[in-house]
Amino acid sequence: MIKSKTKILQLTVTLTACAFLFVPIILSVLAGVTANYFQGISSGFTLKWVFRVWELYADSIFLSMRLAISCLIMTLIIGLPAAYGLARNPGWLSRLLEEFISLPLAVPGLALALALLQLYGSMKGFRASWTFILVGHVLYTMPFMVRSILAVLASIDLKTLEEGAATLGASPWQRFRDIVVPNAMPGILAGALTVVTLSIGEFNLTWMLHTPYLKTLPVGLADSYASMRLEVASAYTLVFFVLIVPLLMAMQWASARAQRISQ
């Protein structure tokens, strides 16, 4: 009897939490396609708010995508060799470097943005270009890429595999291409999806680093929450969900897969 009572309590808590998390999402989706939210759903469904969002904010969506893809490329170019180097040379120095690049995970984005502004804010050309925001995003997403790859590489005997390839005549570059990269693939994939998802959703750093001419999707969202009618804000949020939810699911799937492999 006691057991079923605890179960009912647990189920209630779980369902309440789910409702708390999910109902607002439903509300926002509904509000985004309702003709007049104040009157309620009876006012009919429409896509006009979504089109309105497109007119107003298409630029921000494209900028976010461009940033996400550039950020992915940068984290791959810098992160993959770095993760490989860290995996091949374990030691306190590598641990320290890994810890150091992980700082942006722990230090609030606001503080990092302030730091970047303090040092580079006076370099006008750089400050006003989208690459300034890109630096922030790369900084923030880099640890996810490096750690994701590192976790997979640490689980295989990379040194012996490479020696095996070397005895078969493979040069260092061929070993990297044929052995290291394919075996790190699950980690690269999980890292890549994480980087893109986080970059598209990043607000804290971006809000401080952006200029009026360079609005990313979340910055645009904040802007619409402050100045647009609820239906437009909701429709914009809906667009964001459509973009981010599949990415999030792919990311969770890839991360779970990478974790399975590294165990």
């Binding site: 509300l27 979340p218 969202l221 981010i244 699911m249």
Partner: peptide, 24 residues
């Protein structure tokens, strides 16, 4: 489904969560 719902907000930026609270 419950599990997906409960992990969905992982990728939401703070502003969006703020907006969702406003909707509530």
């Amino acid at each position: 489904i419950l599990l997906s719902i409960m992990t969905l907000p992982l990728a939401f930026p703070g502003v969006v969560i703020g907006f969702l609270i406003i909707l509530l």
